[in-house]
Design a protein around this nucleic acid. Structure first.
Lengths: 213, 213
DNA sequence: GTCTATAGAAGGATAGAC
DNA sequence: GTCTATCCTTCTATAGAC
């Protein structure tokens, strides 16, 4: 196995990386050709329009959320709440590794194209939904630590909002501080939720910092 | 007073509105000419490059945060914590009024241009800083309600992150729900902070919902 | 499936008259 | 300060040979 990568896949991966750095409107089809080592004929053979290519990129992210994001974290961390903060920490590392040039691939595209390309919104939404669902499951796995009245899905959505906002502020300032501060406050919220709960029920094991794992 | 609006101002306002809807790369200089009722000669007389125009738009937002955003809310609401949620509610109304086409003018541009136009970042940051500072002051005005150990500036930054993330998710889904849910969870956090505090100090007056004001 | 060549529109920006 | 005309580049997309 591991045959030579198909032309189509090379195009999708080149477009994915360029969209991530330069955005959709900031990336030309000719740049994608160059990066993929492919000529115009092939590009338009597989993707008749640029929007088709955007859809393929978003589909790539949708199908790779497990192996690309969740699985590496879940392998290292077993505690469901710490898994959430482990996922968030992956984005922090992405920020640092590429000097704040890269943020959330979906979030960037969402703001840029959701007005002008309505046909793309469903796939953007599907990416967000999968992310939220993964976090929701983590919260449900730690259901007994949280107050009964909280909605896991709402907390998961909120967590995504904090992530996206924190990434935006750190990319603008070219500093990890806004992101780290946002996540620190989010953790404070989680801890207060959990503390409010354990005052009414059984004590739980002490939480692990992601840096100890 | 109220003299005829200057050509320069008409250009800035036209660019501001077009950037808000279509983004920076999605807006052409010719569209701006048409919207402002101005010819190319005038446009390039005032703004030699498109980036100069972007800087002028960001400067417009920077100088109008008080009269455009804060003052209308502060007039209606006097409680400092409710002022924060009143400001957030202004964005909710913006979402609804324009059917989720419009989000945060600064946030949209921040993600789109912060890689490709480094000279614009300082002004983007300055807009964020002013917003955060305004919220920080509200928190400080209610300092006694919050636990002593919290950092007002951190909470203000966190509030902005939630706002930006919530706007992003609602614009993508074309529904107010993600935004409203995010703000509801943020309010839950504020209430837990305040509740944790009053258990150690004097009781305070009951909070007002923004809808009662 | 991939190649070369190119159409046709729109992009940002400039020159020079008035 | 504003006008018209236009330059040059880049863009998305197509045609037709191989």
């Amino acid at each position: 196995m591991n045959e030579t990568i198909s032309t189509r896949d090379r195009i999708v991966e080149a477009a994915r990386d360029l969209f991530l750095v330069n955005g959709y409107n900031g990336t030309g089809m000719s740049q994608i050709q160059t990066a993929a080592g492919v000529r115009g004929g092939s590009l338009y053979y597989f993707f008749p329009t640029k929007e088709d290519l955007l859809l393929a990129v978003l589909d790539w992210y949708r199908t790779h959320i497990w192996e690309g994001l969740l699985q590496p974290v879940y392998e290292r961390i077993s505690d469901p709440v710490e898994r959430i903060f482990g996922v968030l920490d992956s984005y922090r590392q992405l920020l640092l590794m590429f000097e704040f040039e890269l943020g959330c691939p979906i979030g960037n595209l969402a703001l840029e194209v959701s007005n002008s390309h309505p046909g793309v919104r469903a796939l953007l939404q599907s990416n967000f939904d999968n992310w939220i669902e993964a976090i929701e499951i983590c919260i449900q796995d730690a259901r007994d630590r949280f107050p009964k009245e909280i909605e896991p899905k709402q907390i998961a959505l909120f967590t995504l909002a904090v992530l996206e906002g924190g990434l935006m502020l750190s990319r603008t300032s070219r500093s990890a501080e806004p992101f780290e501060d946002s996540i620190a406050v989010l953790r404070d919220y989680y801890e207060r939720l959990i503390r409010d709960e354990i005052s009414w029920s059984a004590p739980r094991q002490s939480p692990l910092s992601p840096h100890e794992l």
